[in-house]
Nucleic acid binder design. Sequence first.
DNA 1: CTAATATCAGGACAACTGATATAT
DNA 2: CATATATCAGTTTTCCTGATATTA
Lengths: 150, 150
Amino acid sequence: MSIPPNLMITESAATLARDIRSLVGKLKRRLREQAQVGDLTPSQASALLRLEKEGPNTVSGLARAEGMRPQSMATVVAALEAGGFVVGEPDPTDGRRTLLSLTAACHKWIGEGRAARQDWLARRLEERFSSKEQQEVARIIVSLMQLVED
Amino acid sequence: MSIPPNLMITESAATLARDIRSLVGKLKRRLREQAQVGDLTPSQASALLRLEKEGPNTVSGLARAEGMRPQSMATVVAALEAGGFVVGEPDPTDGRRTLLSLTAACHKWIGEGRAARQDWLARRLEERFSSKEQQEVARIIVSLMQLVED
DNA sequence: CTAATATCAGGACAACTGATATAT
DNA sequence: CATATATCAGTTTTCCTGATATTA
C-alpha cells in the first residue's frame, strides 16, 4: 500500500507534529528570554508591525487577525498605548469603534531601524539564512498558517 | 547595494519574523482549543512521544531536550504519571536519577493508534500535505530548530 | 568540595471566560 | 431586538526563579 487510508496517520506526520510542537515551545521560551526590559513582547511586536504594514485598525480587528480574543488584544494594545507607540481615536463613522494608529514617535522609531534591530528573531533569520532560504521558509510558514487557520 | 551591511535587517526578514511570531501564537492557541478533556497538552504529548521514540529518560534529560527548566518538566511528567502513561524507577547505577519509561498500558494505547488519531496537528498535516511537502516542511522545521537552539 | 538531580514554594505573564455598557 | 465593540473583573495555564536535600 503506497497510499495509506484516510484515517491513518503516518509515522512521519506524527514525528513532524511532535517537532512542530517542540519548536513552538522552544521559540516561545526563547522569545521570552530574549526580551530586554522595555522591549516589546511577541504579541506587542506582532500587533505593532501589523498596524505599520496594514494601517489603522481596531482592537477587535487586530484580535481577529492574530486569532485571539478582543479582551486579550485589549491588554496588548493597552501596553502599546502606555508606551506611547499607538494612539486611539474614535471612528467618526461608527461610534462603537476606536481606530488605533501608530504615533509619530513610533513611526520615527521604526524608521530609525531601532525596532528591527531589537528584533532578535529577525536578526537571527538575517544572519543564518540567505534571502533565497528566507523565501523558502516564508513559503512554508504561509502554508502552515493556512493549515492552522482552517 | 545588493548586499546589505551586517547590521541591517531587511524588510523581508522583519516580515518573516512577524509571520513566525504570529504563527507561533496562533498554533499555541489552536493546539490549546483543540485539546479535549483527558487529552494531552502539547508539552505532555511532546514528552510522551520523545520517551516512546528515544527510550527511557530522566526529568532533567527531557527538560534539556525540550529546552525548558527541570522544574517545569517535572510538572509535565507529574501529569503523565498521574494519568498512568509513564512510570519512574530509580536508576540502579546512579542514585540521583529516576528513569522514566512508558507503561505497558501506554504502549498499548499508542500501538492502537489512539494517540496518533487524537493528534489534531498530525492529522491535519496528513490531510493537507503530500509526503513530499511534509518532507519539505520537516526540513524547514529542523533549520528553525537549529536557529532557535544556537 | 563541586556538580547534577529532584523537588518544594511562590510568582509572572499571556491567554482565557463571564459580565456589562454602549452604539449600530 | 440582534449584533458588534470595548472594557471590567476574575481565573487558568505554563512557564519561571529561588531554595533545599541528596547523591556522584
